[in-house]
Nucleic acid binder design. Structure first.
Length: 498
RNA sequence: GUCCCCAUCGUCUAGCGGCCUAGGACUCCGGUCUUUCAAGCCGGCGACAGGGGUUCGAAUCCCCUUGGGGACGCCA
């Protein structure tokens, strides 16, 4: 009598079975957070791997909590991550007749019945049960009403909700690809509501009707739905339908090992975008969170598609680690195309107010790209990159007082002055790191001095700080005119401590 | 309270009975390189939750305990 239907046949590869169809079904009640993004990613990867279809569906039957204005941001988050959907987005709110039709069928077949209990009555019973440390379950008050009793209740003006008739004996087994068989006793499943009194479906019912009518073959979703699955299986059976394959992916937890929420700081995909995280880094990180392929850490999108499998997903929950995300982000910053990154850095510089829009546009694309090349090994986010690049690309330098005090001594600034005078002779066109290195090393040799004597003073004069890229590269990027000016003015800077 | 899931370094993980005195990655700490800071390279610290079985042999299989998480709505 148990369920072994066909769920365990799972991912039969090679077999010319039905085309894989998966879905991501967020509810527009908040921004797309990293946990949801990972679920979407797994679905997307699975679809791409099997040349299947990735469906997007919004579960928006909860009119009170729904925020239609959040739909667009969720779509944008998915696009930013590169998770393009093939079908949809569908909206449950626009499919009400479909659910009602299926509900009517269940009602006619005696698999569902009207319930006249009010939400208030039910809430009171639930509270009482909890207070008495009993399991809150529907007590079946309306299960066996006579037609006369129903009439009387209708006459009172009560609008019934529809409850599913769930079996009181036996068990229902969820064959989960990630966890294996999970058994539930049917007595733990009460007669749950499938249609609210206003005709809107509840989650468990809408999901089944949708997954069924949309031809979903693999339900890949968050772990928190595992407990709902037996209910859904009962509905599938009542509707005479085959089961999809179920895969419940473990949750993403915060550092304190509880469910990720706003109080844990950044959780939304957008927040990471704003911090200067690259989408490929977040995708790589999320994929590797709870999924693995041997010892490999770095995956291109193509590799992920090639190597992804549901069997590779770990059953245990995983803690989101920002440090590792940053490490991956750094990796992609170090290896990405400087031109593309330069464009992004420019956008961040403007967005964060490091410089004005027009000012940013005046700076050549090649210089933004060059700035990326100089700083990419020392900055982990695009925002940090933008912040660091500005002093070399614009007039905006902030001098660190400590650095000035330490390195711009009268003796050093005199040297810098002299050096500036010497570099005057270098033609604009030859103002390159290579030429400058030759020039400066030669100049130092003549004076019997070493590079380390002027490197830091020079760096501080040029950029305001003690840390940064190589001196010659820095000089080059700052440009002749601006560099000489800063060398000249170093003395004055030191004199006026402000 | 009931039910469900989970359990290898701080974190992500490899491991699917012998290859394990447990491997990799992030973090941290040394060293190296060096014009600074990084990056790179080299090295180090660091785990099979506990107890019973099964087996010639258990991180791997079973049971119990403990711990953690989640779910118990006319929310999704």
């Amino acid at each position: 009598m148990h369920d072994s239907d066909r769920a365990s046949e799972s991912e039969g590869e090679g077999m010319a079975q039905h085309k894989v169809r998966v879905r991501f079904a967020p509810s527009p009640t908040g921004e797309l957070h990293v946990g949801g993004a990972r679920t979407a990613l797994f679905n997307w990867l699975f679809a791409r791997k099997h040349q299947g279809v990735f469906v997007l569906r919004f579960e928006d039957t909860d009119v009170e909590r729904n925020r239609p204005e959040l739909v667009e941001p969720i779509l944008e988050s998915l696009k930013w991550l590169g998770l393009e959907w093939d079908e949809g987005p569908y909206f449950q709110s626009q499919r009400l007749p479909l659910y009602q039709e299926h509900a009517r069928k269940l009602l006619e077949e005696g698999r569902a019945y009207p319930c006249y209990c009010t939400p208030e009555e039910l809430e009171a019973k639930r509270k009482q049960a909890l207070a008495e440390k009993r399991t809150p379950q529907y007590d079946g008050t309306c299960r066996h009403l006579t037609p006369q009793e129903r009439e009387r209740l209708e006459a009172e003006g009560r609008r019934p909700a529809l409850r599913f008739v769930s079996p009181k004996e036996g068990t229902t087994v969820v064959e989960d690809v990630i966890r294996g068989p999970v058994e539930f006793r049917n007595e733990e499943i009460d007669d749950f509501i499938i249609l609210r009194s206003d005709g809107r479906p509840t989650y468990n019912f809408a999901v089944v009707v949708d997954d069924l009518t949309m031809g979903i073959t693999h339900v890949i979703r968050a772990d928190e739905h595992l407990k709902n699955t037996p209910k859904q299986i009962l509905i599938y059976r009542a509707l005479g339908a085959d089961l999809p394959v179920f895969a419940h992916v473990p949750m993403v937890l915060a550092k304190d090992r509880t469910k990720l929420s706003k109080r844990h700081g950044a959780t939304a995909v957008f927040e990471y975008r704003e911090r200067g995280i690259l989408p490929e880094a977040l995708v790589n990180y999320l994929a590797r969170l709870g999924w693995s392929y041997g010892d490999q850490e770095i995956f291109s999108r193509e590799e992920l598609i090639e190597k992804f499998s549901l069997e590779g997903i770990h059953p245990s929950p995983a803690v989101f680690d920002e440090e590792k995300l940053l490490w991956l982000n750094h990796h992609y910053i170090k290896t990405g195309d400087p031109k593309r990154l330069g464009g992004l850095v420019k956008a961040f510089a403007v967005q964060r107010g490091f410089l004005g829009d027009e000012e940013a546009e005046k700076i050549a694309e090649a210089r933004w790209a060059r700035a990326v090349e100089l700083f990419r090994e020392r900055k982990r986010t695009l925002v940090e990159l933008a912040e660091a690049a500005v002093p070399l690309l614009t007039e905006r330098v902030e001098y660190d007082p400590e650095a000035v005090a330490k390195f711009l001594t009268p003796e050093k600034t005199a040297l810098l002055q002299e050096l500036g005078g010497h570099l005057e002779a270098v033609p604009d066109a030859e103002w390159t790191a290579e030429r400058l290195e030759r020039e400066i090393r030669g100049w130092l040799a003549q004076r019997g001095r070493e590079l380390k004597e002027i490197a830091q003073p020079c760096r501080v004069a040029l950029t305001g700080v003690t840390r940064g890229p190589g001196l010659f590269e820095t000089l080059e990027l700052v440009g002749k005119e601006r560099a000489l000016k800063r060398l000249r003015e170093a003395a004055r800077l030191a004199a006026s401590p402000s």
